[in-house]
Design a protein around this nucleic acid. Structure first.
Length: 303
DNA sequence: AGCCAGGCCCTCC
DNA sequence: GGAGGGCCTGGC
């Protein structure tokens, strides 16, 4: 089935760029992933995005896929706003069609708890392993073989237990995942869907009550799943970009007075985020994604 | 061998 | 507040 639209959309950059962890690049422009308990396979075509799904049929799932992909974001307006900044204008030229997704909050939360001191291939393996071992098996729309699983519920993760997640190589993140699942199961965790309606500061305050979630991870969850377009996660790439491009921003120096490498404190991250939110307003999240991708792309090309 | 990867938390100070 | 160190794991 076709999801029709004409605006730019870069599926690879959006699905496989580190904001979601369940998409596989199957080659030929096709990507296979899981959305809300459905296996979805999609590819970009001239007049939109074509997809198949199972177990739900395409007709019933199309609105959810369109919503997940944020097809209706006004990219003309976003690009006009970002292009007032010379570095982001360059980023927009090189990464045309990169989008911010609207993911399931629970899966997004756990995915980013797993992102601490980690890298994208391993986060992807952790999330996929949790689904394979503890989520419900799902049919593939194109094959009789059942190859994917839904992301596990809080109960399924609690039943699995911390040691099981350590066996899946989650390391020190395992107790944080279980802790979030236990709180969700007991109705003691923030209601993630309610946080979609909450304002930014309230959502942030609620999220960081969870162990393993501080400013950076909370901003990822808010940007990618909780309808907070002004969220601005400050990770190492954003720090590099801001240090190089915005000397007036409140970025800590790369080295301290002893010549040792410094890590930004929570206060630094908050101040960098607030600086970006002041500068980019409601588009801070898109500014963040383009800044992140462009800085990585430039630095990796330089190696 | 030792450092680092899209952090976070704890213990001092 | 902030500096320093530890944390699972895996790759260089």
């Amino acid at each position: 089935m076709l999801i029709p639209f004409t605006s730019p959309y870069d599926l690879r950059g959006t699905l496989c760029g580190g904001q979601a962890f369940r998409w596989r690049d199957e080659g030929g422009g096709r990507f296979c992933g899981v959305i809300l308990g459905n296996v979805v396979r999609m590819r970009r075509v001239d007049d939109g995005i074509e997809f198949v799904s199972a177990p739900d049929d395409e007709t019933s799932l199309a609105p959810l896929v369109r919503d997940y992909l944020r097809v209706d974001d006004d990219m003309d307006e976003i690009y006009a706003a970002l292009s007032e900044d010379e570095h982001l204008a360059d980023a927009v030229k090189h990464h045309q069609g990169l989008r911010v997704l609207r993911q399931e909050p629970w899966e997004c939360l756990i995915g980013f708890i797993c992102s601490a001191n980690n890298n994208i291939p391993r986060i992807t393996a952790n999330v996929e392993d949790m689904a394979t071992n503890y989520g419900k098996v799902l049919p593939d729309p194109d094959s009789q073989e059942r190859v994917r699983s839904a992301f596990p519920s809080p109960r399924e993760l609690v039943d699995a237990g911390e040691q099981a997640l350590r066996d899946l190589k989650l390391g020190f993140r395992a107790p944080n995942v279980i802790g979030a699942a236990e709180r969700a199961l007991h109705g003691d965790a923030p209601d993630l869907y309610a946080l979609r309606e909450a304002d930014f500061d309230d959502a942030l305050a609620a999220l960081i009550t969870l162990r393993g979630i501080a400013d950076k991870v909370a901003n990822c969850v808010m940007l990618f799943s909780l309808d907070k377009p002004q969220a601005f996660p400050v990770d190492v790439w954003i720090v590099k970009a801001m240090r190089d491009w915005y000397p007036e921003a409140p970025v800590p120096p790369a080295l301290n007075s002893n010549g040792n490498k410094t890590a930004p404190t929570e206060k630094h991250k908050r101040e960098m985020r607030e600086w970006a939110q002041e500068r980019f307003g409601e588009h801070a999240g898109y500014a963040n994604q383009y800044m992140f991708h462009h800085k990585r792309w430039l630095d990796q090309a330089a190696e």
